[in-house]
């Protein structure tokens, strides 16, 4: 699955589209994806000259998101964005950071689908850079919801309009 198909399948858009390619997939069971990290990724925009190498570690938040988008591709195939749906991260358990990714690295996610209950999926897996495992994911939960159902109820102005 190339980036054209990945972008068509997922509802996330630049700069938060964090899967570059699907290497292989066993539908309903497992998927292997890659996300290439480069110094031109927007997350590096404000790293100051003279910073130590640790400052260039790819943010764990983006690594988890990238893993989650890989899980969505496994779970929903090319229908993740069907009917204008969005994907909501419901949670994670026992995400262990075991290493870091830096510009020039290619992160490879290996995701296994554990369970699907109605519109909620549970996945587990690992993230790798070359032969080094950089993360172990105990469990990750996500749901697909119609855009309309997510609403804007947390917005102050909207509340005032309603009441």
């Amino acid at each position: 699955m190339d980036i054209a198909k990945v972008q068509a399948a997922l509802p996330q858009r630049h700069p938060l589209l964090l899967v570059d390619r699907v290497l292989n997939m066993e539908p309903g069971r497992s998927i292997e994806t890659i996300k290439a990290v480069t110094a031109s990724d927007p997350c590096y925009a404000d790293v100051p000259v003279g910073a130590e190498i640790g400052a260039y570690a790819y943010p764990v938040s983006l690594l988890i998101e990238s893993f989650g988008q890989s899980a969505a591709l496994l779970w929903l195939g090319d229908e993740a964005a069907a009917d204008g749906s969005v994907l909501l991260f419901l949670g994670a358990r026992e995400y262990r950071v075991e290493g870091r990714a830096y510009p020039g690295d290619v992160v490879r996610h290996v995701v296994h689908l554990e369970q699907v209950v109605a519109d909620t999926a549970f996945a587990t897996g690992e993230s790798w850079v070359g032969d080094t495992r950089i993360a172990h994911i105990g469990s990750l939960m996500a749901a697909r919801r119609p855009k309309d159902a997510v609403g804007t109820t947390s917005n102050e102005e909207d509340r005032h309009v309603r009441t």
Binding site: L88, A92, E94, Y95, R96, S154, N155, E156
Partner: peptide, 17 residues
Amino acid sequence: LLSVRSLRLTAPLHGGD
């Protein structure tokens, strides 16, 4: 950051919030 033992998301955070 060494680990996220647990993360639960219970309500969306909309733009403007």
